[in-house]
Design a protein around this nucleic acid. Sequence first.
DNA 1: TATTGTTATACTCTATAACTATA
DNA 2: TATAGTTATAGAGTATAACAATA
Lengths: 163, 163
Amino acid sequence: MSTAPGAGPDERAARPGPRGTAFLLSQVGAHAAARFAERISELGVIPADVGLLRMIATRPGRSQQSLAEEMGVVPSRVVALVDSLERKGLVERRRNPQDRRNHALHLTEEGTRVMKEMRRLGSAHEDDICAALDRAQRARLAELLEAIAAQQGLTPGVHPGYR
Amino acid sequence: MSTAPGAGPDERAARPGPRGTAFLLSQVGAHAAARFAERISELGVIPADVGLLRMIATRPGRSQQSLAEEMGVVPSRVVALVDSLERKGLVERRRNPQDRRNHALHLTEEGTRVMKEMRRLGSAHEDDICAALDRAQRARLAELLEAIAAQQGLTPGVHPGYR
DNA sequence: TATTGTTATACTCTATAACTATA
DNA sequence: TATAGTTATAGAGTATAACAATA
Protein backbone atom coordinates (compact mmCIF):
# COMPACT_ATOMS: atom_id res chain seq x y z
CA MET A 1 0.00 0.00 0.00
CA SER A 2 2.96 2.27 0.48
CA THR A 3 3.92 1.45 -3.11
CA ALA A 4 1.24 3.66 -4.62
CA PRO A 5 1.55 3.52 -8.40
CA GLY A 6 3.22 6.73 -9.51
CA ALA A 7 0.89 9.34 -10.98
CA GLY A 8 2.43 11.39 -13.76
CA PRO A 9 1.55 14.98 -14.52
CA ASP A 10 -1.22 13.91 -16.91
CA GLU A 11 -2.95 11.91 -14.24
CA ARG A 12 -2.58 14.69 -11.73
CA ALA A 13 -4.28 17.07 -14.12
CA ALA A 14 -7.19 14.62 -14.35
CA ARG A 15 -7.69 14.60 -10.59
CA PRO A 16 -11.29 15.37 -9.72
CA GLY A 17 -10.69 18.42 -7.58
CA PRO A 18 -8.93 18.93 -4.25
CA ARG A 19 -9.75 16.79 -1.28
CA GLY A 20 -12.26 18.71 0.84
CA THR A 21 -12.35 19.39 4.53
CA ALA A 22 -15.29 17.03 4.99
CA PHE A 23 -13.34 14.21 3.40
CA LEU A 24 -10.35 14.95 5.61
CA LEU A 25 -12.58 14.89 8.66
CA SER A 26 -13.95 11.52 7.70
CA GLN A 27 -10.53 10.14 6.76
CA VAL A 28 -8.71 11.31 9.87
CA GLY A 29 -11.69 10.40 12.05
CA ALA A 30 -11.79 6.84 10.74
CA HIS A 31 -8.07 6.54 11.26
CA ALA A 32 -8.35 7.77 14.84
CA ALA A 33 -11.17 5.33 15.50
CA ALA A 34 -9.20 2.41 14.07
CA ARG A 35 -6.14 3.25 16.12
CA PHE A 36 -8.24 3.54 19.26
CA ALA A 37 -9.82 0.16 18.57
CA GLU A 38 -6.33 -1.34 18.26
CA ARG A 39 -5.27 0.17 21.55
CA ILE A 40 -8.22 -0.98 23.62
CA SER A 41 -8.13 -4.47 22.14
CA GLU A 42 -5.44 -5.21 24.71
CA LEU A 43 -8.16 -4.74 27.34
CA GLY A 44 -10.39 -7.19 25.49
CA VAL A 45 -13.03 -4.58 24.65
CA ILE A 46 -14.30 -3.02 21.43
CA PRO A 47 -15.18 0.67 20.86
CA ALA A 48 -18.90 0.09 21.40
CA ASP A 49 -18.12 -1.37 24.82
CA VAL A 50 -16.33 1.82 25.82
CA GLY A 51 -19.38 3.99 25.36
CA LEU A 52 -21.53 1.53 27.23
CA LEU A 53 -19.09 1.26 30.13
CA ARG A 54 -18.80 5.01 30.35
CA MET A 55 -22.55 5.47 30.41
CA ILE A 56 -22.95 2.87 33.13
CA ALA A 57 -20.11 4.39 35.13
CA THR A 58 -21.66 7.83 34.78
CA ARG A 59 -25.05 6.72 35.98
CA PRO A 60 -24.99 3.31 37.67
CA GLY A 61 -28.19 1.33 37.87
CA ARG A 62 -29.65 2.52 34.62
CA SER A 63 -31.72 0.22 32.43
CA GLN A 64 -30.82 -1.27 29.08
CA GLN A 65 -33.68 0.58 27.44
CA SER A 66 -32.34 3.94 28.54
CA LEU A 67 -28.93 3.03 27.14
CA ALA A 68 -30.45 1.94 23.85
CA GLU A 69 -32.31 5.22 23.61
CA GLU A 70 -29.27 7.37 24.36
CA MET A 71 -27.02 5.43 22.00
CA GLY A 72 -29.65 5.44 19.29
CA VAL A 73 -29.58 1.68 18.87
CA VAL A 74 -32.16 -1.06 19.10
CA PRO A 75 -32.61 -2.79 22.51
CA SER A 76 -31.51 -6.17 21.22
CA ARG A 77 -28.16 -4.66 20.32
CA VAL A 78 -27.70 -3.61 23.95
CA VAL A 79 -28.49 -7.16 25.01
CA ALA A 80 -25.57 -8.44 22.92
CA LEU A 81 -23.20 -5.76 24.19
CA VAL A 82 -24.13 -6.27 27.83
CA ASP A 83 -23.93 -10.05 27.38
CA SER A 84 -20.36 -9.73 26.22
CA LEU A 85 -19.41 -7.30 28.99
CA GLU A 86 -21.00 -9.57 31.56
CA ARG A 87 -19.13 -12.59 30.20
CA LYS A 88 -15.92 -10.60 30.59
CA GLY A 89 -16.90 -9.78 34.16
CA LEU A 90 -16.98 -6.01 33.63
CA VAL A 91 -20.66 -5.31 34.33
CA GLU A 92 -23.43 -7.08 36.15
CA ARG A 93 -27.18 -7.09 35.76
CA ARG A 94 -29.11 -6.71 38.98
CA ARG A 95 -32.81 -7.36 39.21
CA ASN A 96 -34.71 -4.35 40.39
CA PRO A 97 -37.02 -5.50 43.25
CA GLN A 98 -39.40 -2.60 42.60
CA ASP A 99 -39.85 -3.47 38.95
CA ARG A 100 -38.61 -6.92 38.16
CA ARG A 101 -38.86 -6.28 34.44
CA ASN A 102 -35.76 -4.17 34.17
CA HIS A 103 -32.12 -4.88 34.88
CA ALA A 104 -30.10 -2.32 36.78
CA LEU A 105 -26.62 -2.22 35.28
CA HIS A 106 -23.52 -1.76 37.42
CA LEU A 107 -19.78 -1.96 36.87
CA THR A 108 -17.95 -4.69 38.70
CA GLU A 109 -14.69 -3.96 40.47
CA GLU A 110 -12.91 -5.28 37.41
CA GLY A 111 -15.06 -3.03 35.25
CA THR A 112 -14.00 0.00 37.29
CA ARG A 113 -10.39 -1.02 36.93
CA VAL A 114 -10.76 -1.39 33.16
CA MET A 115 -12.39 2.05 32.98
CA LYS A 116 -9.30 3.48 34.64
CA GLU A 117 -7.06 1.69 32.15
CA MET A 118 -9.18 3.04 29.32
CA ARG A 119 -8.63 6.59 30.48
CA ARG A 120 -4.91 5.96 30.49
CA LEU A 121 -5.05 4.52 26.97
CA GLY A 122 -7.23 7.43 25.93
CA SER A 123 -4.57 9.93 26.93
CA ALA A 124 -1.87 8.02 25.08
CA HIS A 125 -4.16 7.82 22.06
CA GLU A 126 -4.76 11.55 22.21
CA ASP A 127 -1.02 12.25 22.24
CA ASP A 128 -0.48 9.82 19.37
CA ILE A 129 -3.17 11.24 17.10
CA CYS A 130 -2.31 14.87 17.82
CA ALA A 131 1.46 14.40 17.71
CA ALA A 132 1.69 16.81 14.77
CA LEU A 133 0.14 19.66 16.77
CA ASP A 134 1.35 21.78 19.66
CA ARG A 135 -0.83 22.57 22.63
CA ALA A 136 -2.37 25.70 21.13
CA GLN A 137 -3.16 23.95 17.86
CA ARG A 138 -4.86 21.09 19.68
CA ALA A 139 -7.04 23.52 21.55
CA ARG A 140 -7.83 25.29 18.31
CA LEU A 141 -8.76 22.03 16.61
CA ALA A 142 -10.99 20.95 19.49
CA GLU A 143 -12.73 24.32 19.33
CA LEU A 144 -13.46 24.00 15.62
CA LEU A 145 -14.65 20.43 15.99
CA GLU A 146 -16.89 21.35 18.88
CA ALA A 147 -18.46 24.11 16.82
CA ILE A 148 -19.24 21.63 14.05
CA ALA A 149 -20.53 19.02 16.49
CA ALA A 150 -22.87 21.52 18.12
CA GLN A 151 -24.17 22.90 14.84
CA GLN A 152 -24.72 19.39 13.48
CA GLY A 153 -26.70 18.40 16.55
CA LEU A 154 -24.31 15.73 17.83
CA THR A 155 -24.79 14.65 21.42
CA PRO A 156 -21.58 15.16 23.42
CA GLY A 157 -19.91 11.85 24.14
CA VAL A 158 -22.20 9.81 21.91
CA HIS A 159 -20.45 8.33 18.90
CA PRO A 160 -22.58 7.94 15.76
CA GLY A 161 -20.79 4.65 15.12
CA TYR A 162 -22.78 3.08 17.95
CA ARG A 163 -25.76 2.84 15.63
CA MET B 1 -32.44 10.18 21.42
CA SER B 2 -33.20 13.83 21.91
CA THR B 3 -34.81 12.92 25.23
CA ALA B 4 -31.52 12.23 26.96
CA PRO B 5 -32.25 11.41 30.59
CA GLY B 6 -31.35 14.47 32.65
CA ALA B 7 -28.01 14.29 34.43
CA GLY B 8 -27.96 16.01 37.78
CA PRO B 9 -24.92 17.64 39.38
CA ASP B 10 -23.90 14.40 41.07
CA GLU B 11 -23.78 12.54 37.79
CA ARG B 12 -21.87 15.34 36.14
CA ALA B 13 -19.23 15.13 38.86
CA ALA B 14 -18.89 11.41 38.17
CA ARG B 15 -18.17 11.99 34.46
CA PRO B 16 -14.95 10.26 33.48
CA GLY B 17 -13.04 13.30 32.27
CA PRO B 18 -13.54 15.68 29.37
CA ARG B 19 -14.08 14.42 25.86
CA GLY B 20 -10.75 14.58 24.06
CA THR B 21 -9.83 15.91 20.67
CA ALA B 22 -9.27 12.40 19.31
CA PHE B 23 -12.79 11.42 20.31
CA LEU B 24 -14.20 14.54 18.70
CA LEU B 25 -12.31 13.74 15.51
CA SER B 26 -13.73 10.26 15.43
CA GLN B 27 -17.23 11.43 16.34
CA VAL B 28 -17.44 14.26 13.84
CA GLY B 29 -15.68 12.17 11.19
CA ALA B 30 -18.17 9.32 11.54
CA HIS B 31 -21.02 11.81 11.36
CA ALA B 32 -19.60 13.38 8.20
CA ALA B 33 -19.18 9.93 6.64
CA ALA B 34 -22.74 8.94 7.49
CA ARG B 35 -24.17 12.13 6.05
CA PHE B 36 -22.14 11.71 2.90
CA ALA B 37 -23.39 8.14 2.53
CA GLU B 38 -26.96 9.43 2.81
CA ARG B 39 -26.34 12.02 0.15
CA ILE B 40 -24.80 9.75 -2.44
CA SER B 41 -27.40 7.05 -1.90
CA GLU B 42 -29.59 9.06 -4.28
CA LEU B 43 -27.05 8.19 -6.98
CA GLY B 44 -27.31 4.52 -6.05
CA VAL B 45 -23.72 4.28 -4.86
CA ILE B 46 -22.04 3.66 -1.51
CA PRO B 47 -18.94 5.41 -0.12
CA ALA B 48 -16.59 2.62 -1.19
CA ASP B 49 -17.81 3.04 -4.77
CA VAL B 50 -16.80 6.69 -4.72
CA GLY B 51 -13.15 5.95 -4.05
CA LEU B 52 -13.12 3.30 -6.72
CA LEU B 53 -14.76 5.54 -9.32
CA ARG B 54 -12.37 8.35 -8.54
CA MET B 55 -9.35 6.11 -8.88
CA ILE B 56 -10.58 4.76 -12.21
CA ALA B 57 -11.37 8.27 -13.44
CA THR B 58 -7.93 9.46 -12.40
CA ARG B 59 -6.13 6.68 -14.21
CA PRO B 60 -8.35 4.84 -16.68
CA GLY B 61 -7.39 1.36 -17.74
CA ARG B 62 -5.85 0.33 -14.47
CA SER B 63 -6.18 -3.23 -13.19
CA GLN B 64 -8.19 -4.49 -10.25
CA GLN B 65 -5.03 -5.64 -8.52
CA SER B 66 -3.55 -2.17 -8.56
CA LEU B 67 -6.77 -0.80 -7.07
CA ALA B 68 -6.77 -3.43 -4.36
CA GLU B 69 -3.20 -2.55 -3.50
CA GLU B 70 -3.82 1.18 -3.32
CA MET B 71 -7.00 0.80 -1.29
CA GLY B 72 -5.38 -1.70 1.01
CA VAL B 73 -8.08 -4.30 0.47
CA VAL B 74 -8.09 -7.86 -0.75
CA PRO B 75 -8.60 -8.46 -4.52
CA SER B 76 -11.85 -10.34 -4.03
CA ARG B 77 -13.29 -7.26 -2.41
CA VAL B 78 -12.55 -5.28 -5.56
CA VAL B 79 -14.33 -7.93 -7.58
CA ALA B 80 -17.50 -7.36 -5.58
CA LEU B 81 -17.24 -3.57 -5.86
CA VAL B 82 -16.55 -3.63 -9.59
CA ASP B 83 -19.35 -6.17 -10.10
CA SER B 84 -21.82 -3.81 -8.50
CA LEU B 85 -20.55 -0.78 -10.44
CA GLU B 86 -20.71 -2.77 -13.67
CA ARG B 87 -24.26 -3.90 -12.93
CA LYS B 88 -25.17 -0.25 -12.43
CA GLY B 89 -23.54 0.58 -15.76
CA LEU B 90 -20.94 2.96 -14.29
CA VAL B 91 -17.75 1.09 -15.20
CA GLU B 92 -16.79 -1.55 -17.71
CA ARG B 93 -14.14 -4.23 -17.76
CA ARG B 94 -12.18 -4.44 -20.99
CA ARG B 95 -9.95 -7.39 -21.79
CA ASN B 96 -6.40 -6.33 -22.39
CA PRO B 97 -5.27 -7.96 -25.70
CA GLN B 98 -1.63 -7.86 -24.61
CA ASP B 99 -2.29 -9.75 -21.41
CA ARG B 100 -5.67 -11.35 -21.36
CA ARG B 101 -5.43 -12.08 -17.66
CA ASN B 102 -6.13 -8.58 -16.48
CA HIS B 103 -9.15 -6.35 -16.89
CA ALA B 104 -8.65 -2.72 -17.85
CA LEU B 105 -11.24 -0.65 -15.98
CA HIS B 106 -12.94 2.33 -17.58
CA LEU B 107 -15.80 4.63 -16.68
CA THR B 108 -18.83 4.49 -18.94
CA GLU B 109 -20.50 7.69 -20.08
CA GLU B 110 -23.00 7.19 -17.29
CA GLY B 111 -20.10 6.69 -14.89
CA THR B 112 -18.60 10.01 -15.95
CA ARG B 113 -21.94 11.69 -15.46
CA VAL B 114 -22.29 10.21 -11.98
CA MET B 115 -18.78 11.39 -11.11
CA LYS B 116 -19.86 14.90 -12.01
CA GLU B 117 -22.94 14.55 -9.82
CA MET B 118 -20.77 13.31 -7.00
CA ARG B 119 -18.62 16.39 -7.14
CA ARG B 120 -21.74 18.51 -6.92
CA LEU B 121 -22.97 16.52 -3.92
CA GLY B 122 -19.50 16.74 -2.41
CA SER B 123 -19.61 20.52 -2.46
CA ALA B 124 -23.04 20.59 -0.89
CA HIS B 125 -21.85 18.11 1.72
CA GLU B 126 -18.84 20.28 2.47
CA ASP B 127 -21.05 23.31 3.03
CA ASP B 128 -23.41 21.31 5.20
CA ILE B 129 -20.72 19.85 7.47
CA CYS B 130 -18.79 23.11 7.78
CA ALA B 131 -21.86 25.34 8.17
CA ALA B 132 -20.67 26.41 11.62
CA LEU B 133 -17.39 27.78 10.26
CA ASP B 134 -16.51 30.78 8.14
CA ARG B 135 -14.09 30.57 5.25
CA ALA B 136 -10.98 31.30 7.33
CA GLN B 137 -11.97 28.73 9.96
CA ARG B 138 -12.50 26.07 7.31
CA ALA B 139 -9.06 26.69 5.90
CA ARG B 140 -7.63 26.55 9.37
CA LEU B 141 -9.37 23.26 10.09
CA ALA B 142 -8.19 21.73 6.81
CA GLU B 143 -4.64 22.80 7.65
CA LEU B 144 -4.72 21.14 11.07
CA LEU B 145 -6.27 17.97 9.68
CA GLU B 146 -3.72 17.79 6.90
CA ALA B 147 -0.92 18.09 9.43
CA ILE B 148 -2.35 15.16 11.36
CA ALA B 149 -2.95 13.11 8.23
CA ALA B 150 0.63 13.63 7.05
CA GLN B 151 2.17 12.84 10.42
CA GLN B 152 0.02 9.73 10.78
CA GLY B 153 1.09 8.48 7.37
CA LEU B 154 -2.33 8.62 5.71
CA THR B 155 -2.36 8.48 1.92
CA PRO B 156 -4.10 11.55 0.46
CA GLY B 157 -7.50 10.61 -0.92
CA VAL B 158 -7.49 7.08 0.48
CA HIS B 159 -10.07 6.50 3.16
CA PRO B 160 -9.12 3.97 5.86
CA GLY B 161 -12.72 2.77 5.82
CA TYR B 162 -12.08 1.07 2.50
CA ARG B 163 -10.30 -1.72 4.31
C1' DT C 1 -52.74 -4.03 27.54
C1' DA C 2 -48.03 -1.99 27.89
C1' DT C 3 -43.19 -2.49 28.90
C1' DT C 4 -38.44 -4.74 29.61
C1' DG C 5 -35.60 -7.72 28.08
C1' DT C 6 -34.55 -11.87 25.25
C1' DT C 7 -34.26 -15.11 21.43
C1' DA C 8 -34.62 -16.58 16.62
C1' DT C 9 -33.78 -15.41 12.26
C1' DA C 10 -32.05 -13.29 8.34
C1' DC C 11 -29.28 -10.12 5.91
C1' DT C 12 -25.02 -7.52 4.85
C1' DC C 13 -20.25 -7.07 4.79
C1' DT C 14 -15.91 -8.88 4.39
C1' DA C 15 -11.97 -12.10 4.53
C1' DT C 16 -9.84 -16.70 3.41
C1' DA C 17 -8.85 -20.02 0.44
C1' DA C 18 -9.66 -22.80 -3.50
C1' DC C 19 -10.20 -22.44 -8.28
C1' DT C 20 -9.93 -20.91 -13.63
C1' DA C 21 -7.63 -18.75 -17.31
C1' DT C 22 -3.94 -17.01 -18.97
C1' DA C 23 1.16 -16.17 -19.14
C1' DT D 1 5.39 -22.05 -12.02
C1' DA D 2 3.41 -17.40 -11.39
C1' DT D 3 -0.23 -13.99 -11.90
C1' DA D 4 -5.16 -11.69 -12.58
C1' DG D 5 -9.31 -12.45 -11.48
C1' DT D 6 -13.20 -15.20 -9.68
C1' DT D 7 -16.11 -18.17 -6.80
C1' DA D 8 -17.38 -20.65 -2.62
C1' DT D 9 -17.61 -20.50 1.97
C1' DA D 10 -17.66 -18.92 6.52
C1' DG D 11 -17.57 -15.50 10.15
C1' DA D 12 -18.76 -11.09 12.35
C1' DG D 13 -22.02 -7.55 13.08
C1' DT D 14 -26.53 -5.88 13.20
C1' DA D 15 -31.57 -5.28 12.45
C1' DT D 16 -36.43 -7.18 12.60
C1' DA D 17 -39.81 -9.44 14.64
C1' DA D 18 -41.72 -12.86 17.64
C1' DC D 19 -41.65 -14.10 22.40
C1' DA D 20 -41.63 -14.47 27.88
C1' DA D 21 -41.92 -12.29 32.13
C1' DT D 22 -43.65 -8.68 34.70
C1' DA D 23 -46.39 -4.66 35.49
